[in-house]
Simulated scan of single mutants.
Amino acid sequence: MDQPGRLHAFDNLRAVMMWLGILLHVAINHTTGPSPLPWRDAQTSPIADLILIFIHAFRMPVFFILAGFFVALLVARRGPRAMLKHRMRRLALPFAIFWPVLIVCTTVLMLVYVHIMARGTVGIDISLLAKKSVGASPFNTMHMWFLYYLIWFCALTAVLAPAWAALPARVHHAVDAAFRVLATRWWGVLVLTVPLAIIGSFYRAGMLASSGSFIPQLPEIVHNGLFFVVGLLSHRHQDVLFPLLVKTCWQKTLAGLAVFAAVVWAFVAFTSDPLGIPHIEALIACLYNLTSWLWSFALIGLFLRYLPSQNRVLRYISESSYWVFLVHMLGTIGFGAMVYSLPLGAMSKMLLNVVATTAVCLLTYQLLVRHTIIGVLLNGSRKPKGAQVVAPLSAGNA
C-alpha cells in the first residue's frame, strides 16, 4: 500500500544502485588493469574494466545526493538534533557493530582467495600478501567508507544548521539563487565539475579512489561532500529542480553517454601510453566528473518520470539494501574464490558470482534480518500499512 508523502522513485533508484554495487565488486575480480586489491581471477576482460568505470561514474554520486536530500528532509521535519540522533542510530551503531565482524570475515576470505591463486588449494598463508606487495593497512573502513563519511556529513550538518539558520535572510536568498542558477542552466554541471576535476587530476587516471582511511581525507570530503550538499539544497528547491530533471532526463542521459565515450577513449589512451597525451589525467578527470553529474541528475529524473510509484520487487530490494550493502563483499570475494579454478571465461564467472551473491544476500535478509532485531537495527521497526514514514536510511545505503 502506498504511503503518503513517500518518494517511491527514490526507493526504486536506491534498489537499482544497490544491486549495481554487487555487479561492480564482481567486475573488480576480472579487470585487466592495475588493481589495489590482492585478489583477482586469472580470467580478465576489458568488459569488466568498462563495467567498473561505468557504474563508478554515477553510483556513489547518486547515493550522496539522495542521502543529502533525506538528511535535509529530516532536519526540516524534526530539527538538526533529532536528525543527528536518527542518523547515528541508523549509521554509527550498525557501523560499530558490523565493522569488526566484517573486517575479520573479509580478511579471512581474502587470504583464502590469495592462497587459491598462489597454490591452487584452500588455505591461509599471510606471507603470500607480502608477495603481492600489498602496502595498504588492513585496518580500514573497507566498502563501509560510504557510511563512515555519511556519519561525518550528518554530524557536520547538525553542527552547522544553527549557524546557517542564524545567517541574515539575504545570505539565504543569495545561496538559493546561486543554486537555482546552477541547477537550471545547462552550464551549471560544468561549474560543478570544476572542483571535482581539480581533485581527480591528482589521482591515477584522473579518478578519485577511496582510501578507506579512518582519518577523513580532504579530497574525499570535498568530492563526496559536494554531492551531499547538492542533495541538501535539492530538498529546498525540489519544486523547481525535480520537474526540470524529469523534463531533461533524456538529454542528460545522451549527453552523459557522449561524454563517457570520450572518457573511454581517453582512458584507453592513458592505459596504452600514460605519457602519450599531455595532461591526459586532467582531461579524464574533467570528462569523468562531468559524466557523474550528468548521469546522476539523469537517473533522478528518469526514476521520477518512469518509476514514481511503488514497485513490489524494487521495494523489497530497497528494504534489503542496507543488509546487502553490508554483506555483499563477502559474497563477491567468497564466490570469486570458489569459481577461480573453474574452466570458464570471465563473463561466465561474473554471471555466476553476481547470481550467487544476489541470491544469498536476499535469502539471508529474508531468513535472518527482515523480521528480526537486525532488521529493526538497520531499517527501524516495520510500520503498519498506510503509516507515513521517512524511508529508513533512505538513499543512504551503498
Rank of each mutant, 00 (worst) to 15 (best):
D2L: 11
G5A: 03
F10L: 10
F10Q: 03
N12D: 09
L24C: 02
V26A: 00
S35W: 12
P36A: 02
D41H: 04
T44W: 02
A48Y: 02
A57G: 01
F58W: 08
F58E: 00
F63A: 00
I65W: 11
L66S: 04
A96M: 14
T106C: 00
V108N: 13
H115L: 06
H115Q: 11
V134K: 02
W145C: 01
L147Q: 00
Y148D: 05
R170L: 05
H173L: 05
H173M: 04
R180M: 13
V181H: 04
R185L: 08
W186V: 06
L192K: 14
P195D: 02
I198G: 01
G200F: 08
G200H: 06
G206E: 06
L208A: 09
G212I: 05
G212C: 06
P216C: 09
P219Q: 04
V222E: 02
Q238N: 03
L241I: 13
A258G: 14
V259C: 14
T271Y: 11
S272G: 07
I277H: 07
P278H: 08
I280V: 14
I280R: 13
I280L: 15
W293R: 05
G301Q: 14
Q310E: 11
R315T: 14
Y316R: 15
S318W: 05
F325K: 00
G334A: 02
G334Q: 05
G334P: 07
M338Y: 14
L362D: 00
Q366V: 08
I373S: 14
R382C: 08
G386T: 15
Q388H: 04
Q388E: 10
